[in-house]
Structure formats: structure tokens, C-alpha cells
Design a protein around this nucleic acid. Structure first.
Length: 211
DNA sequence: CCTACGATTCACT
DNA sequence: GTGAATCGTAGGG
């Protein structure tokens, strides 16, 4: 499993987001290895992106990681419940990143099933298997990623990193991002990237009247 | 100190 | 499709 070098994350955020589709998210702890193929992400670009936590250069204890070196994990808690995983991009003082929104489980299915549903993988219905990791909060829960443990974590480490995928050809589509309707024109930016027709993609773009 | 709310998910209709 | 859950964060007094 070839770990992506820091230089990968130091490219422009939209390029990193597009290139992350098909890569592998890897989490290793206590002798257990979890691997999933990334199938959906969203790019968040610093000061000019109203939908970003770092809009206007806003710098707080929560988003401090975004202002650091590329190739680190920015993990935050949303709705008091869900932990969302981002990869910091570009470089120091350019607070941009890519939110990992959905992935296809490849290895460690039993652990994921246990963390999500307290069941064995075999006990899960087809629907529940898809719900293991088809959303940012679900992915965080299935992988056991918490902000307490992984916010600011270097993705060059052995416990949590991104690895190359297979050589398969992947068709990447884009759409506006999910859940940011109140962000002015930024809501229309096509900064969500996902694999075409992949069953683990979270949802279709929200249709709008003027669309 | 106090209040409002979110890069979501789930149960329910 | 609708609404509740749930609490850390951010921002204002």
C-alpha cells in the first residue's frame, strides 16, 4: 500500500479533491487495518469560500489545523455527534482542505460493521452495508476517527493515511456541495467530486428551482 | 455568561 | 419529505 507523499496535498485544492477519488483511506490501530476506497469528496477553499470554516480568514481553535502544513487531518465535530475528516491542502497560511464524504469499504468490514451497527458484517442487510460509509459522519464512525484523537494528525504516519488506488479507470463527476444552501453564490460552486454511478456516493445533488 | 446553529444522520410519515 | 437529536463552537454582551 503506497502512501501518498505530502507533495500530493500541496497541489491546488480542486486538483487534490479530484485526484482523491479512487484513492484509499487507511486506518491502522491495535493490529486492525481498515481500508476504504474514496468515492466522494468536497473542496473547501479558504478566505474566498463562504461555505468554508476558514471563510474571510476566520481563524479559531477549531479550524487551526487548516492553517498548518498540507497533508494533515482536519477533524471536527458537527451537530454535536458526527466527526468529519478533511485533508489539509496547499500549505501554511492557505487554509484550504478537502472533506472526505464517502467511501467503499475494502478491508476491515467486521470492525466497521461493529462500530456502525454493533453487528457482524454478515448480519447486515444490503442497505445497511451501503450505509456503513456513504456519508461523512458515517465514514468517521465506521473508521473510529475522532477529533480528539486525529485532528492535526500527520497523514504521513502509519496509523492514518491516504494510499494509492488500483489502476482502474474512474469516471469522476462534479456537483454543487451538500448542505451549504445559506452560503451565497458559493453554494453553486461545483466543488463536490464523486465517482459516477458508485453505490457508496452519499446522494444526488439537491435540485433547485432555478437550476 | 448566554444564545444560536451547524461541511449530518436517523426515525417517521 | 419533514423534523428531532445533541453539544462543541463562535460570537456577542
Amino acid at each position: 500500500m503506497k502512501k501518498l507523499p505530502r507533495a500530493f496535498f500541496q497541489q491546488p485544492t480542486l486538483e487534490v479533491a479530484n485526484a482523491l477519488i479512487g484513492k484509499r483511506l487507511v486506518h491502522q490501530q491495535e493490529g486492525d487495518t481498515l481500508v476504504a476506497k474514496i468515492v466522494e469528496v468536497e473542496a473547501y477553499k479558504g478566505p474566498d469560500d463562504r461555505a468554508a470554516h476558514t471563510y474571510g480568514g476566520r481563524r479559531t481553535p477549531r479550524n487551526e489545523t487548516m492553517f498548518g502544513e498540507a497533508g494533515h487531518a482536519y477533524v471536527y465535530l458537527i451537530y454535536g455527534i458526527h466527526h468529519c475528516i478533511n485533508c489539509v491542502t496547499v500549505g501554511p497560511e492557505y487554509p484550504e482542505g478537502v472533506l472526505l464524504r464517502a467511501a467503499e469499504p475494502l478491508e476491515g468490514l467486521e470492525t466497521m460493521a461493529k462500530k456502525r451497527f454493533q453487528r457482524t458484517y454478515n448480519e447486515l442487510t444490503q442497505s445497511r452495508r451501503r450505509q456503513l460509509t456513504n456519508g461523512p459522519g458515517k465514514l468517521g464512525q465506521a473508521f473510529g476517527i475522532t477529533k480528539e484523537r486525529y485532528n492535526g494528525h500527520d497523514l504521513q504516519s502509519d496509523s492514518l493515511f491516504i494510499a494509492e488506488g488500483s489502476k482502474e479507470r474512474i469516471v469522476v463527476e462534479t456537483s454543487p456541495r451538500i448542505g451549504i444552501d445559506a452560503s451565497g453564490e458559493a453554494r453553486d460552486y461545483p466543488w463536490r467530486f464523486f465517482e459516477k454511478d458508485h453505490p457508496y456516493v452519499s446522494k444526488r445533488p439537491k435540485p433547485r428551482a432555478d437550476g
